[in-house]
Write a protein that binds this DNA or RNA. Structure first.
Lengths: 186, 186
DNA sequence: CTAGTTATTTATCATTTGTTAATTTTTATT
DNA sequence: AATAAAAATTAACAAATGATAAATAACTAG
């Protein structure tokens, strides 16, 4: 299970804690386009992507908007629900065929009480996610759509694997506008 | 010290842990406009605002951009530095006369090892901040500047206390554009 | 209170992005 | 390979926002 490689790179667990985690992890495969967690639900699972990719999405004025992408070896959660217990208007969907490890959130939170190192590990994991989110805000403040697109080209594998329509809304622009930007860049 | 009221509302500490925290807290007052942490520095302090308000800011193409506001009873940190140890191109500035409690970050992180409840408390505090940040991204994706401004009017005290030029960049628009929006709304 | 500074508004014009619709390209299915 | 369906591009025009400059209003220091 390469989940533990991921963990080890952040904060290695005792073998006791590893075993405790393994007992609450299950594996699952989703087909391309399949909804992993539906809009309106509560986030009760932390997903680790073994293979494939997924997105967090929601609808605004009838438009499908992608808020976040996750790839191989990424964690994906709907933070605004996981950390508040409230339902969220966002869902998670597999973009391509995707193989995930599911960590049950309630069980995980219970492990926090017993295994200090597990709480620490996940604190560090989500601090990283937090930092990524802060950087994303920067990209929206006073960067043009073109700059945001070029940043994306440089820093991620997104553009290779993901339909443009998802990328456009992720950048906060329409599909047509992204097409125009791509034409300029070429 | 109303820091503990803030803590208690999130996760009450043992009296032992409270005392440990108090030993690493100091109080300080900043004058209006005074820089609390300069651009380019590392974030080594967690600030709790007892009174007044502050902002996180940076420069982009010579423009002063406000990324974040914090008010009475808010925590303020430069997450991308605090959680990575790297310097950041952002600074913190008092907007009005501001009274803060400073928690030394290194000392705090050391307390995490000994006081499980302190680590938990700050995990929960920063999870909340993370959720706020996620919500802010939402506001940038496919909300018009006018919508973002109206949201701000409804949900915060920002507009009462803060110069428009700061609010404009916070919304991701120019001062002139914000003025125009305000004229429409009236 | 006054002069000087800073913040805000207004106006004009340029640029970017949105909207709609038609066209081409790509992908999926048989 | 042929067809249908979905995705991406292009074009034309509309709306939102940026940039610059000038005018007004609010604030600050003496």
């Amino acid at each position: 299970m390469d989940l533990h490689d991921f963990f080890d790179a952040i904060y290695p667990l005792t073998s006791n804690s590893r075993q405790a985690i393994e007992r609450i992890v299950t594996e699952k495969t989703y087909k391309k386009q399949e909804v992993i967690q539906p809009i309106g639900s509560r986030c009760k699972t932390v997903y680790f992507i073994k293979n494939g990719c997924a997105r967090i999405f929601y609808f605004k004025d009838g438009h499908d908007i992608t808020e976040h992408f996750a790839f191989k070896k990424d964690i994906i959660v709907r933070a605004e629900s996981l950390f508040t217990g409230k339902p969220t208007s966002k869902g998670i969907q597999a973009i391509n065929d995707t193989n995930v490890l599911k960590i049950d959130a309630l069980s995980l939170f219970r492990l926090y009480d017993v295994h200090h190192d597990i709480e620490r590990l996940f604190r560090l994991i989500f601090e990283k996610e937090y930092v990524n989110t802060v950087k994303r805000i920067e990209s929206f403040q006073f960067k043009s759509a073109k700059e945001r697109y070029l940043d994306l080209l440089n820093t991620t594998e997104i553009v290779q694997k993901i339909p443009l329509k998802y990328i456009a809304s992720y950048l906060g622009i329409t599909q047509v506008s992204l097409s125009r930007i791509r034409a300029e860049v070429r």
